[in-house]
Write a protein that binds this DNA or RNA. Structure first.
Lengths: 328, 328
DNA sequence: CTGAAAGCGCTTACAG
DNA sequence: CTGAAAGCGCTTACAG
């Protein structure tokens, strides 16, 4: 494997000059540059990432930290990031940090030395984790609502989205509208709950505490929570689920209870993952543009890495959209 | 940020000794080890991955290279790997290498220096890419059929799976059974095609060339290919799709043509991704145990990293299973 | 515009 | 069982 020294020798220049050609951190005479580039190509030279990193250079890697690989929303965000990273010879790394996996801090300390920049979904991370991430002093995008502090943010307006879908239910005449959240302390749960409560409140009815239950953001969680709701003496005629996976689980439960959707029970989702249009009845949901979110994150990061932006913190809010299908 | 020198000082030992405690490559007196470990904990020391890597150590990272992040099969494989990697403080990195993205060789040269081991789906990679991967001289698992050479392999018997599902169609009395492949040169396409042809042949009828078409492994690809098939003068009464995504696209096409599934047209998938049970009618398909595949890959890799295995090449074949639902 | 030299934080012979 | 020293392959002052 050719090293920088081999290249320098082949091009008849010093090691420093080769490095300058690579990092573009100071001017190099065009003729010299050409000779070096030729040598690099001829020898198939590739910088050793560990060495550059050690000496203070970059790793050429950007990380995406997600709470789940099984929720297709997150891989799609990754695909969006790839869309913009591909031209730049930057590697995207996706890591799952499930709640209760390994101590968050550990992984973030690791990450902070292996990557040039990262985007993380805050959900599942503790405040300390977040502080560590932000303290890592590398470009950083938060995927989701701003939560205490620094860093760029890309998100959609979950409160508004949830309000809209709840209003849709109210307009359709549903009387007793329940809410199934994901993990209770997760920001998406909180915000979507807020939108739901807000819509009810604006319609002159208040959310009954009993009508709000929490699960986790999975199909199984939704199934469990919906089953509980449907087993009650007086049961809801509509369910606002905090994401599509939960809604699909609720659909499972409705089927088991012999309920027809949306006649006996309306169910709405959130995110519009591909499965939302595949289930029967197809889900009425809020489109959460995962791929676009990924693209926006990557662009923000690149701008920081290119030092086009320095101090200002940017918040990008992408639009959501109510998608009315069959389930409500 | 504390370095190894700080730890050595705090524990009153030499830098080498701290390193030995960390790498466990030579014995350390229990008392010394305890002092060092205490110092590490107290200072919150974490080895700098770049430095270890440079000096010949490991990066503590394992890579999973997949052709697509939007096909949920691959993220699930990643989740399976996480299942076994979590206890070991090893980072999993998932990278998408779409066909026609960047030159495969580039990414593999990169990967080969950033990770301790990797598993790659061969599909989308050229022979040179594979050779580079295998030449990288790090533990390596191929996700899918053995293809020219070295390295451990984890796969399912796609030929058999495809044969079984085609036989199922034959038994149900379908007369003209077409096949929609993914990318034509991809191994899964070839093997599933082989199973399909084999089943027809065994039943005394041979696959007509016209009944075999190729798309890519996406819903859109399946939709396009199925539309073509269904627009013909004499059209198939059954379609064997090379994966679930293609089958779902075929379902879309059938709906557009006003065809009832499975009465007018049977459709089968492959993989049993979650969406397979969500579509209507639910897909008859072959279960391809993605999560288990991921687990097996990770175990194989760890055994090599732990030097429990050295020379022998292992091939793990996981069982598949015909799942009969509504679509065929 | 270019080069010689120091040093990033580790691991690993080498010596005891 | 432990330590002193060399060196992995780069980048970056420093000097010209």
């Amino acid at each position: 494997m050719a090293g920088i020294r081999d290249v320098a020798e082949a091009a008849g220049v010093s090691v420093s000059t080769v490095s300058q050609v690579l990092t573009r951190k100071r001017p190099v005479a065009p003729a010299t540059r050409a000779r070096v580039e030729e040598a690099i190509a001829r020898l198939g030279y590739r910088p050793h990432p560990g060495a550059s990193q050690l000496r203070g250079g970059r790793t050429g890697t950007i990380a995406l930290i997600v709470p789940s690989l099984t929720n297709p929303f997150y891989p799609l965000v990754g695909a969006g990031m790839q869309d913009v990273l591909l031209d730049r010879d930057i590697l995207l790394t996706i890591t799952e940090v499930g709640s209760g996996h390994r101590p968050g801090t550990t992984i973030h300390q690791l990450m902070s030395r292996r990557v040039d920049a990262m985007v993380a979904a805050p959900f599942g991370l503790t405040d300390e984790d977040l502080a560590a991430l932000q303290g890592a002093d590398i470009p950083f995008v938060l995927l989701g609502s701003p939560r205490g502090g620094a860093g760029d943010v890309v998100h959609t307006d979950d409160v508004a989205g949830s309000r809209e879908i709840t209003e849709h239910l109210i307009e359709r005449g549903y009387r007793r509208i329940a809410f199934i959240g994901g993990d209770e302390d997760a920001t998406p749960t909180q915000e979507r709950l807020e939108g739901y409560s807000g819509a009810l409140h604006a319609a002159g009815r208040d959310a009954e505490a009993a009508d709000v239950v929490f699960a986790d953001f999975t199909r199984q969680g939704g199934h469990r929570a919906a089953s509980e709701l449907l087993a009650r003496e007086v049961r809801p005629d509509a369910i606002v689920a905090a994401n599509d996976l939960i809604a699909i689980g609720a659909l499972d439960a409705a089927r088991e209870h012999g309920l027809s959707v949306p006649a006996d029970l309306a169910i709405t989702g959130y995110d519009d993952i591909e499965a939302a249009s595949l289930v029967s009845p197809a889900l009425t949901t809020i489109e959460n543009p995962a791929r676009e979110i990924g693209r926006a994150c990557a662009r923000l990061l690149l701008e920081r890495l290119d030092a086009d932006v320095t101090d200002v913190t940017r918040t990008v809010v992408l639009s959501h959209r109510l998608i009315i299908r069959e389930s409500a």
